[in-house]
Amino acid sequence: MRCQTCGDATSPAFNECQRCQTPLGQPAITPGVPTYSVRKLGKAAAVAVGAASLLYLPGGLFPVLGVRMARSAAERGDRDLLLGAAAVEVLLTLVFGLAVLTAAVLVIIWTWRVRTNLEAFPGALPTLSPAWAIAGWLVPFANIVVPARVVANVARDSLWRRTTPALVGLWWTAWLVFSGGGRIVAYLEEQRYSRLTQWPRSETEFGTYVRFYQEALGPRLVPLVACLVAGASFVVLIRRISHAQEERIAKATPLRPGHPGAVLPGPGPAGSPTPPTVAGTIGT
């Protein structure tokens, strides 16, 4: 006897498939339980997460340009260049924020769908309700732990793992370092920037802006690297989970009449059994 989910041979010595944990004799999808397609949504979420991660690069590395602009401002005594540097950084921050918002919406919807699909997977053992797939991202303090638990659960039951894939831990650790470290770095920079002379006149006062950007680069590299690691690992997770769930759902999708490969009744002699014909074939 073979498992209807993964196709492996099963043994009566066990109550479930040793590869995918589907109970013996159970179908890949529980009949009557709705499922949601995640192929297109998964691709969109992966692209959005990847784009947001890359769009953090210009802002994270802006101090390199900031140093040049501050030095040029010092040489010319041009305060407008310093204002221009601040304006460019604000613009980069807004673009990144818009990308994050777009990615967040897609990821929340994707998380809810893949978690809801577990309800139709025999052998799946979800620990949190589908509602937490949404609330976990939005509720303060809960969003430090819950999203990782939901995704870990989905990864185990979708990828046929008895333990949580290491990629989940890497993603969430990097995300916490990025989100927490980014806030700390931004707060410290704001405090330092507020102590700079608002309207520099002397070479010394212009020089404080040069030093500000020079000292800002190092701390920014920590959340920058964490952002790239979190983004890359989450993109891989989204693609793997989406692909695995789509394959499992496809095993329970019946062929519709008219679909190539569907068996349809064909003509036969009166009073004789009607032989089947395969839809999509061309007769002569």
Results as ranks from 00 to 15, higher is better:
Ile241Glu: 03
Val229Ala: 12
Arg71Cys: 00
Arg149Asp: 04
Arg156Cys: 08
Thr10Met: 11
Gly123Gln: 07
Pro275Asn: 06
Leu55Cys: 09
Leu196Thr: 08
Pro267Tyr: 11
Gly266Lys: 06
Val278Lys: 08
Arg162Asp: 11
Leu41Glu: 06
Gly84Glu: 06
Pro27Ala: 07
Leu217Asn: 06
Phe178Glu: 15
Tyr56Glu: 11
Pro269Ser: 09
Ala120Met: 03
Leu81Ser: 03
Tyr213Thr: 01
Thr164Arg: 04
Ser194Leu: 10
Gly136Thr: 10
Trp112Met: 02
Val38Asp: 01
Ala48Glu: 10
Val222Gln: 04
Pro140Cys: 07
Pro23Asp: 04
Leu101Cys: 08
Val100Ser: 04
Trp175Ser: 08
Ala186Val: 02
Lys43Gly: 10
Met1Asp: 10
Thr22Gln: 11
Pro257Cys: 03
Ala45Thr: 15
Arg183Phe: 01
Leu83Glu: 13
Thr102Leu: 15
Arg220Asp: 07
Ala74Asp: 07
Ile29Met: 14
Ser242Glu: 05
Leu255Gln: 11
Gly77Lys: 08
Ile109Trp: 13
Gly268Asn: 01
Ala250Gly: 06
Cys17Gln: 07
Ile144Val: 14
Gly283Tyr: 12
Ala104Trp: 12
Ala142Gly: 05
Pro200Tyr: 10
Val146Arg: 07
Ala155Gly: 04
Pro273Met: 08
Ile134Glu: 01
Thr127Met: 10
Asn117Leu: 05
Gln245Asn: 03
Ile238Lys: 07
Ser53Arg: 03
Glu75Pro: 00
Gly258Asn: 04
Glu16Ile: 00
Ala232Leu: 15
Gln214Val: 01
Arg183Pro: 00
His259Met: 14
Ser72Gly: 15
Trp172Ile: 08
Leu57Pro: 01
Arg113Asp: 02
Glu189Ser: 11
Val210Ala: 09
Gly218Tyr: 06
Pro63His: 05
Tyr193Val: 02
Ala279Asp: 12
Glu16Thr: 09
Pro63Ile: 05
Val177Lys: 04
Ala51Phe: 13
Ser158Tyr: 02
Ile238Val: 15
Arg183Leu: 02
Glu247Ser: 12
Arg201Gln: 15
Arg162Lys: 11
Pro223Tyr: 06
Val185Gln: 01
Leu159Lys: 06
Tyr193Cys: 00
His259Tyr: 12
Pro265Lys: 04
Thr274Tyr: 00
Thr22Trp: 02
Val114Pro: 05
Arg149Ala: 14
Ala186Gly: 09
Trp112Leu: 10
Leu217Phe: 13
Gly123His: 04
Thr197Tyr: 00
Val168Phe: 10
Ile184Leu: 14
Cys3Asp: 06
Ala44Met: 12
Ile134Asp: 02
Gly181Ala: 05
Ala103Asn: 09
Pro140Ile: 10
Gly77Ile: 08
Ala9Asn: 11
Pro130Asn: 05
